[in-house]
Design a protein around this nucleic acid. Structure first.
Lengths: 327, 327
DNA sequence: TATGCGATTGGGCAATTATCCAGTCGAAGG
DNA sequence: CCTTCGACTGGATAATTGCCCAATCGCATA
């Protein structure tokens, strides 16, 4: 396993490996063995500052994974209430973080945890993945694994309107990390016309990916709001004009590009006619977990639950409380 | 972040829960959300010192679990060499810790990790557990889980010679933590005579436990040295005189009370005639992982491998290197 | 060989965290 | 009602960690 890998770059490769190796060792000594940084420096024969840098690198490069193994009562209770109230199959609530406005911390960790659990299963799983910031953060938190028995399916198109492959990395990163078969959707998020969509979907590779997506056991999706800063607008998938039209039509959010109203009903006739993603998996056969944090997503989450678009949720306390208040 | 933390009063349950809950939240904010302790203090409405205490409690009480997700090259390589050289099925090497003489750090973590992986499986596992300090530390590191599908079998007697239940806690603690069926061996480690052993083993509950132990899929055992500070002597299971006799007879170590010589061959006729533990599971059907760290255990580990008593090993770099040198 | 450039290093110091300690609170008991 | 005891608190302070910066190193290029 640890053979000297073919050097990819003259200056990097070997060197970077060595450094990460040292970082891992330093991180181990610090977090597992409980050494102080100056002790680590002594053990590893470097200066204290270098030891500090290694420990810090270990943490920031994700070598060190931390999890909290305690049912935080309030979160547990909120989760149970949500399950009961809305008939959700899976709910995970993470603690609030009032001083931060990150929309991923915590939620991404919890999602990575659940995803990892799935991946540890021996029976082959078909795992569908949407796109978005939170999903990206989730994958970043995933450890390296070896799971050739599973299949990872991209649920949404991965291309930017100009053909660039920005979000590509989500599905590729995950496949790379866990050594599973991956099925990306090499498509734009929205086709430029109904005809194009038909053409795109006629491709045999896309056909089989779409088919697999319908058989997914579990799906992780983000929920995009449709406010002024809507991700699909900000990322250039829909024009400002189209965004306004969607808002007028009562659209509150989207999942994998599928736009829906406050009752969770897909809005026909507008951008939904162009969405290149396949239909969302059926909540009857698939656990569809939405990752959502932040006030802006409340209407979307609420609607997605009402419309039975999702049957699982990972969010934070504030959202949980708001959902329960809205009943 | 090493010393202190001993306040484990047996007082008010409700109160302790609340405190642990707060600790979990503080730990989450600190390690997952990356807040500073004064921010946590502000968020949770306590003084900075109290926040510090909560974070510290979260860590020392094991609510916070840390793992290193990186193949440390040197350890990987040593592990592979050991697998190849001795035909072991499972080897895990943890980094050295030259400044500490703990015999559990690292090894216990790695064992807890492997055990946890097993427990996450859905197909029912029969998991056998020996006794000893390292096993105890391993269980302490295990998170709470819910695995009613598995069975946990105690491999060795759990009673002190005077009937006290000192090591009881290992098997009970594990069963409690993971909600699995547990089969303790309510026996002394050594019977006082051959006749007593027959009597003890005739009990139907013991019978079924012994039978289950033979069907184990995986076993975690410690290796006890038989030097002047031999655990089975120190803990009062054998007298000083018997220890001397065993040493004279060429005994180098014991697993679950079964004493063997430097070739890993069980020594007949002495204390082995009194061992209340059932026979060790067969390495043909069971993955028997020994947990061993520390120079004193080298002869024992080497012998156990030679005699095919074990087919798995979790140890540290020093031991690994020493084993490879001994070939 | 000299030179430029980016990465790395360790000193110095600020920020953060850990611990000491005396005072307070509350429960248990006289 | 008072005392004792143990746990908890916050102020003060020590210990540890994080970061800036100038010096240096490694290396590719002129």
């Amino acid at each position: 396993m640890s053979k000297s890998s073919k050097n990819q770059s003259v200056s990097n490769g070997e060197d970077t490996n060595k450094r990460l190796d040292d970082a891992a060792r330093a991180g181990w000594l610090y977090y597992v063995a409980g050494k102080r940084q100056d002790e680590i420096a002594q053990i590893m024969g470097v200066s204290r500052q270098s030891a500090q840098r290694l420990v810090s690198l270990a943490m920031s490069s994700g070598i060190i994974k931390v999890r909290v193994d305690h049912p935080i009562a309030r979160c547990q209770q909120l989760g149970q209430q949500l399950r009961d109230e809305f008939g959700l199959k899976y709910v995970e609530i993470v603690p609030d973080d009032p001083l931060s406005n990150s929309t991923t911390t915590g939620v991404a960790n919890a999602a990575a945890n659940e995803l990892e659990n799935r991946l540890k299963r021996e029976d082959p799983q078909i795992i569908a993945i949407g796109t978005g910031q939170t999903l990206k953060a989730t994958i970043d938190l995933l450890p390296n694994m070896n799971c050739p028995q599973h299949k990872i399916i991209s649920l949404a198109g991965n291309l930017m309107p100009d053909g660039a492959a920005t979000f590509y990395s989500v599905i590729f990163a995950v496949a790379d990390k866990i050594k599973a078969l991956s099925y990306p959707m090499v498509l734009p998020v929205l086709a430029s016309s109904r005809e194009e969509r038909i053409l795109l979907h006629a491709q045999s590779t896309i056909q089989s990916t779409l088919k697999l997506a319908q058989q997914a056991n579990i799906a992780f999706v983000g929920i995009g709001d449709l406010g002024a800063e809507a991700p699909i607008y900000r990322d250039g998938f829909v024009s400002h004009k189209d965004l306004k039209i969607l808002q007028k039509a009562g659209a509150v959010a989207e999942i994998c590009g599928w736009v829906f109203d406050q009752s969770g009903i897909l809005i026909d006739g507008l951008t939904n006619d162009l969405v290149a993603s396949g239909p969302l998996p059926s909540p009857k056969s698939c656990l569809i977990i939405a990752l959502a944090k932040g006030k802006k997503k409340l209407p979307g989450v609420s609607a997605a639950i009402k419309g039975n678009l999702i049957n699982g949720l990972i969010t934070d306390e504030t959202m949980a409380i708001a959902l329960l208040k809205n009943i």
